[in-house]
Structures are given as C-alpha cells and as structure tokens.
Design a protein around this nucleic acid. Structure first.
Length: 358
RNA sequence: GCUGGGUUACUCAAGCGGUCAACGAGGGCAGACUGUAAAUCUGCUGCUUUCGGGCUACGGAGGUUCGAAUCCUUCACCCAGCA
C-alpha cells in the first residue's frame, strides 16, 4: 500500500481527500479556511482556468499556488470531464474530435477553439500543478459499445500525446526528477471490462506515475457501484497510486481506500454544504454518518453545535440555530461555515484507517 | 363633504361573466445533488375524500344571471385630488 507521495520535494501522506477548486477557489472559502478544515490538497480545472483567466495570466502570476496562496498539493484535472458534463448539456456548445475538444464562441459562434491534449498539458505546467492529468474522453454511462470503443481508443491516443507533451515540457523547463510534477492517466470504458482492461493495459505500456478511475457507475440505490470500482483497481499494479476521480460519499471513500485507492476528490461536501445538507456523526452510532438538513425549520431553535462530535471551526463556534438562520436569510457566510464543516468531515473520514470488509 | 382609485389565499400581486380553488413572485414544506456553467434544480402549498367528487373561499351584506373574484346596490376601511 502506498502511504505517501513525494512531489517537488514535498511529501503528502495518503490517502488524501482534495476538494474541488475548479476555477481556483473552493467556493466560498479562502486558504486559511481550507487549512483550518484540514485540507492538504485541492484539484483545479485546466479547461476552466485555460478559458479564464488563461495560460499567460497563470504564467505571469507564477502558477496557481502563488495565485491562491496555498502551498499544499495541487492536482489539475485535464478538462476531459467537461466534455461530458458541459457539451452534453448544451447542444452546439462544442464537440469532441480526435484532435481535441472543439468549442465555438462569439455572438454568432463564429470562433472555433480547439483544446488539444497538448494544450491541456501545457496549461497544467503553467498552473504549476503537482499532479498533471491526461486529457481523456469520458465514457458516458449510457454509451453503447461503439462509443465505448471510441472513448477508450481516444483516451489512449490522447494519453500518448499527453505523455509526449509532458516529456517535452520537462525538457523545456529543465526539470529534474525531484522538480517535476507527476503525470496520471485515466482509465475509461464504463463497465465494459474488455474495453476497460484494454485501456488500462495500453496506458500501463505508455507508463504513468498513477492511474485514475474514470467514469461513474452507480447502483440502484444511487451509491457508487463498489464491485465496479474494486474491479477497476485490479487493472493496475499496487505500485502505482490510484486516484478515484469525483468520488464519493464518506462511506464510499472508506470502502474505496480499502480497495486500493489513495486520492479522492468530490464536489459533494461543498455543494451539499451550500444546499444545507450536512454530514454529521450518527448520535445513535449505527451509521458512520447521517445527513442533517439545516434548511429544515426543526433547527430554528436548536442551540446544539451542528455536530457535537466535531471539532471544526463551525461546530466549535456556532449553533444549528444560528446556521439555520444564516441559511434562511441567504447570507454568504452560511456557505463558508457549512463548507468548512463538511470538508472537515470528509478530510477526517479519509484519514481514518480503512475499514476492511470481512 | 365631493370626485376618482383600491380591498384577491401566509405575503406581494394577476385576473374584470363560464375553461378559476384562481397566473406569477416570495415564503413554507418535501425531494434531489458524486473529476462543479449547481449559494442550484424538481415537486407540493384552502379543507376534505371511498380519488368520481364534495365543501368553503377573491373586504361585509344584499341583488342581477342558467352561471359572479369578475356586473349592480349598499356598508366598512385604505389611497389620491378637490373642498
């Protein structure tokens, strides 16, 4: 089991939960807030930051860590997921071709922008991230076999190009092995194990510093399909770190740690916090956690801390009554206080020793 | 005192003879959220029901009409202008 990751002379204990700072900020939180919540790493999004403020800006300010005033772990997501989440939502916004991600901008959609695998890697060097991710072609859960094949073939071919560009960048910036960021590739193929296995084998042939669980598969109850994630973990050797991209709920993270994943990111703690859905310890101690919906009027006069078993800033300085009030009046501070707690809960959960399945 | 304008569900606010238990917004309630165009989105929101309906409701009271939140009379209150 890999217990830590040393990048650019700094060692990060594993497993690690990294909140999503998609556009260079974990919504509503500043760096001291994040540190207080126990956050040691974050993931930023290359595609969004390339769109704005752009590569020149990031080069000028000396990278995302300087910009954010954060010197922990920074992972940069390649932009592959944006194809799935953005392009599918808005017809005409863009398309995926073998060359890269094509988007159209301007009042009459007259400007064509191609975001190629090479562009993604170059931008990730400009960001100065610690872990660079290859641009991938997300396999949608609804994909049929031809689309799955196209997705894994493109993911492998783009990974090759990313690896080449990465090597070029290492030379260009004259980075030693102690100065270089790591590069991870993403395994796609949804639940088609022939495609998924092929994808993993091809990526292993190219050679990366780590491998990511790409795609999403949920069971009938809306939870992560843990058989699927377990099977995926077996596609790569234990020598290399595994990053479960976009997962999961606290219990799912613990289960996936036991399966051999060490790196996690998920929007749930922060998004749920903004929607008043809080993760708290179960007072009955039956479950690892329960949801507490602070938007409910039952908390109007509840003077307890949000989670009496939590030592975070929010739980030690506020009451449910006050948090409920802040939510009801729509004050910005609610997002901050709620996010601090949920992040603390996720970070804490990730650090707990993994629960082994009997 | 006169002349206009108003009074609609928890609140604001449409409607101006039937398709109105009544548009829309807010609030309230419930649900969703998993590499963030999500501080967002989706329902429900008079009472009752054997889910066919029944009952009570658009300031109060009368009236016209087959039928009224909508038209008429009158009373109450609010607003504006003139005395």
């Amino acid at each position: 089991m890999i217990e830590s990751l040393t990048i650019k002379g700094k060692t990060y204990p594993l497993p690690i939960f990294c909140p999503d700072a998609t556009r260079g900020v974990v919504k509503g939180l500043d760096t001291p807030d994040l540190l207080a919540a126990g956050v040691e790493g974050m993931i930023v999004n290359t595609w969004h930051l390339n769109h704005y403020p752009g590569r020149d800006f990031l080069l000028d300010c000396g990278g995302i860590k300087k910009l954010m005033g954060f010197d922990g772990l920074i992972i940069s997501d390649s932009g592959g997921f944006q194809v799935h989440s953005l392009f599918q939502k808005i017809p005409g916004f863009g398309k995926i071709t073998d060359r890269g991600l094509v988007t159209y901008t301007g009042p009459k959609k007259q400007h064509k922008i191609i975001f190629r695998p090479e562009d993604s890697i170059r931008m990730q060097f400009a960001l100065g991230s610690d872990i660079v991710i290859c641009l991938d072609d997300f396999t949608p859960p609804s994909a049929t076999r031809p689309r799955i094949e196209q997705s894994v073939e493109r993911t492998v071919s783009w990974a090759k190009r990313c690896r080449q560009e990465y090597d070029r960048q290492i030379k260009y910036w004259r980075l030693t092995d102690h100065e270089r960021p790591l590069i991870f590739a993403v395994i796609q193929g949804h639940d088609d194990w022939e495609c998924r296995r092929w994808c993993a084998q091809e990526l292993l042939k190219i050679g990366f510093d780590g491998y990511c669980l790409g795609g999403q598969k949920f069971n009938d109850h809306g939870g992560v399909d843990l058989d699927w994630s377990a099977k995926n973990a077996q596609l790569t050797p234990d020598d290399w770190p595994r990053y479960a991209m976009g997962f999961g709920k606290p219990d799912e993270i613990q289960a996936m740690i036991a399966q051999g994943y060490q790196i996690f990111d998920c929007v749930l703690p922060t998004r749920d916090a903004r929607h008043a859905r809080m993760y708290v310890h179960d007072p009955q101690k039956i479950k690892d956690y329960i949801f507490l919906n602070l938007n409910k009027s039952q908390y109007t006069h509840d003077r307890q801390p949000l989670d009496p078993h939590c030592q975070c800033h929010t739980c030690t300085t506020t009451t449910r009554e006050y948090l409920h009030h802040l939510y009801k009046i729509g004050d910005d501070s609610f997002a901050r206080l709620a996010s601090i707690h949920n992040l603390h809960f996720f970070v804490d959960t990730t650090k707990k020793p993994p629960v082994r399945n009997p």
